[in-house]
Design a binder for these strands. Structure first.
Length: 487
DNA sequence: ATAAGCACGC
DNA sequence: GACGTACGTGCTTATA
C-alpha cells in the first residue's frame, strides 16, 4: 500500500551483499562475543537457518543456497525487498545491541528478593491456615481441589480444556468476594512470579566479563514480523504493578557519563489502522491530536469528549484493544464484565462511528480468503491456511489473524526501519551513545550526556519518518537514571 | 523431555 | 451448543 522505503541509500543491498553479511555474522555465536561458555551454543543470528531449514541443509554452500533456493522463494512471495531492505540490514543492528548488553544494578534486587521471600512465606502460611490443609499453592491442580472441593468457593467452577479446575487470574478475580483466600492467592502468585522469573533469575545472567545482561533477539519466531527476545527475555520486564516496577529500576546506564533514553511510539497500532482503513473519524482523532480512547468513548457513548468519564474511557480502551486483536461480543463482555447484549451494542456503535474501520476489516478478510495471505505496509506476508475452513472456530481464529497481522506487522516494519536508520546515523556521527533494547514499540538507548540533544532529535526524526504516513506518527521520549524513570 | 497452567510484556 | 482478543518467553508442577 505504501510504496516508499526510507532506508538510507548506502544501506541498500543486493544478494551478493546479503550472502556476505550472512557469512560474516552467522558463524559467530553470541557466547564468543561476551565470553559465556556453555554446551548450548547457538548461532548468533538464526534468521537465515530458520528460513532455510525446509529448503536446504546446513552444510551446503550458503551463497548458493541464497541464490538458488532462497532468492526464488523470496521473489515468488514478493518479499525480496522486505528481506533485502529490512531484515538483512537489521542483522548487524541486532548483533550490536546483543553484544552491547545493559547494566543491571543488583544491590537493591538482593534486598528485594528477601522481601519477596518473606511476603511469600507469610502468604503461604495464611493461605494454608484459611484452607485448613497443607498443599502446594504453586500447583494449580492442588489449588483447584482446595478451592472448589474443600472450600467450595463457587458451585459452578470453570474448567480448563483438560477439565481441571481453572484458577487463572480472571477466574479468581470474579471469586474474590467469596472468600478471603482468593486475594491472598493472587498476591502469592504475583510475588512468586516476580521472584523466580526476574529478581532471582536476572542477576544470575550477568556476564562475568563485562558485568552486563545480554539478551538475544530472534527475527524468525513471531508470525507477524515482530522480534522476540530470550535468554533472558528483556521484552517482558514488569511495569504494571509497584513491586514489578522495582525490577525496572535495576536497569541502569553504564556509568555516570550516560543516561537511559527511552522512546516509544504513541498508539502506533491504532494509527496504523487509521492509515490502512482511511477511516475519516479515526484519522481526524489523530490529526487533531486528541486522546484516542477518550475520542472513541465520546463517539460510542454519544457524549461530548469533555463529558467522558473514567469508566467510559476505560471501556473504550478495551474496545480499541479489541479492534486491534479482532473482537467478539463475548470477548468484550467478559473483559468489561457486562452482558453480551450490551457488548454487542457497543461494538455496533463502534462500527457505526468508524465505518471505514469496519469496511477495512471486511476487505482484509475478503483479501485473505481470495489470496490465502495478508500483508503489511512493507509487503510482509502472513499465510492463513485456515481462512476458508468450514470449522467456524478455526476460521474465526484465522480471521482474527487476518485483522491483526497487518497491523502488528506494519508496526514491526516501522520500528525495524527506524532501528536500521538510527544505528546508521549513530555510526555516521561517530557517537558514543548505543541502542540497547527494543520492546516492540519502544527503543532504549544508553545516551552519552554530551550527545543527548542530538540523540533525541535523531531518534525522533528517524522513528517518525521510518514509514511515511498521512496519519501523524507521535513518539514519547524520556530520560532517567534507570529504565523506570526513563519510561 | 514434554505438556499444562499460569503470569509477565506489548 | 461451542468458541470466545493478537504476538511472545519462562517459571513450576505433573506426567511420561
Amino acid at each position: 500500500m505504501i510504496a516508499h522505503y526510507l532506508i538510507e541509500p548506502d544501506l541498500r543491498h543486493n544478494m551478493d551483499f546479503l550472502a556476505e553479511t550472512y557469512l560474516r555474522y552467522r558463524p559467530v555465536p553470541i557466547e564468543s562475543l561476551i565470553g559465556k561458555k556453555g554446551k548450548n551454543q547457538r548461532s548468533l543470528r538464526t534468521v537465515i537457518p530458520a528460513l532455510l531449514k525446509d529448503y536446504a541443509c546446513e552444510d551446503a554452500d550458503v551463497t548458493l543456497q541464497l541464490k538458488e533456493v532462497f532468492e526464488p522463494m523470496l521473489k515468488e512471495t514478493g518479499t525480496m525487498d522486505l528481506f533485502a531492505r529490512i531484515e538483512m540490514p537489521l542483522v548487524p543492528v541486532l548483533v550490536s545491541m546483543e553484544a552491547e548488553g545493559i547494566k543491571l544494578e543488583t544491590t537493591a534486587l538482593k534486598e528485594f528478593s528477601s522481601e519477596l521471600h518473606e511476603g511469600i512465606s507469610r502468604l503461604d502460611a495464611e493461605i494454608k491456615e484459611l484452607a485448613g490443609v497443607e498443599f502446594n499453592i504453586a500447583s494449580p491442580k492442588q489449588l483447584g481441589e482446595v478451592l472448589f472441593e474443600k472450600l467450595k468457593v463457587t458451585d459452578k467452577p470453570k474448567l480448563t480444556k483438560t477439565r481441571q479446575y481453572s484458577t487463572g487470574e480472571d477466574v479468581l478475580l470474579r471469586l474474590a468476594e467469596k472468600h478471603p483466600i482468593i486475594n491472598k492467592i493472587l498476591d502469592y502468585r504475583s510475588l512468586a512470579k516476580l521472584k523466580s522469573t526476574y529478581v532471582d533469575a536476572l542477576p544470575k545472567l550477568i556476564n562475568q566479563r563485562d558485568r552486563r545482561i545480554h539478551t538475544s533477539y530472534n527475527q524468525a519466531v513471531a508470525a507477524t514480523g515482530r522480534l522476540s527476545s530470550n535468554n533472558p527475555n528483556l521484552q517482558n520486564i514488569p511495569i504494571r504493578t509497584p513491586k514489578g516496577r522495582e525490577i525496572r529500576k535495576a536497569f541502569v546506564p553504564r556509568n555516570n557519563d550516560y543516561t537511559l533514553l527511552a522512546a516509544d511510539y504513541s498508539q502506533i497500532e491504532l494509527r496504523i489502522i487509521a492509515e490502512l482503513s482511511e477511516d475519516a473519524n479515526l484519522i481526524e482523532t489523530f490529526v487533531s491530536g486528541q486522546d484516542v480512547h477518550t475520542a472513541t468513548a465520546a463517539r460510542i457513548f454519544g457524549v461530548s469528549p469533555d463529558l467522558v468519564t473514567t469508566d467510559m474511557r476505560r471501556s473504550a480502551k478495551t474496545v480499541n484493544f479489541g479492534i486491534v486483536y479482532g473482537i467478539s461480543a463475548f470477548g468484550l463482555s467478559e473483559r468489561l464484565n457486562i452482558p453480551r447484549k450490551e457488548a454487542a451494542d457497543i461494538i455496533a456503535q463502534y462500527f457505526a462511528k468508524y465505518p471505514g474501520v469496519k469496511s477495512y476489516m471486511d476487505h482484509t478478510i475478503d483479501f485473505a480468503r481470495k489470496h490465502g495471505y495478508v500483508e503489511t505496509m512493507m509487503g510482509r506476508r502472513r499465510y492463513l491456511r485456515d481462512i476458508n475452513s468450514s470449522n467456524a472456530t478455526v476460521r474465526g481464529y484465522a480471521e482474527r489473524n487476518a485483522i491483526n497481522a497487518p497491523v502488528q506487522g506494519s508496526s514491526a516494519d516501522m520500528i525495524k526501519i527506524a532501528m536500521i536508520n538510527i544505528h546508521e546515523s549513530i555510526r555516521r556521527e561517530g557517537m558514543n551513545s548505543k541502542m540497547l533494547l527494543q520492546v516492540h514499540d519502544e527503543l532504549v538507548f544508553d545516551a552519552h550526556k554530551n550527545e543527548l540533544d542530538l540523540l533525541r532529535e535523531m531518534v525522533e526524526e528517524k522513528m517518525c519518518s521510518a514509514i511515511p504516513m498521512s496519519v501523524p506518527v507521535v513518539i514519547h521520549m524520556n530520560t532517567g537514571d534507570n529504565w523506570l524513570e526513563a519510561h
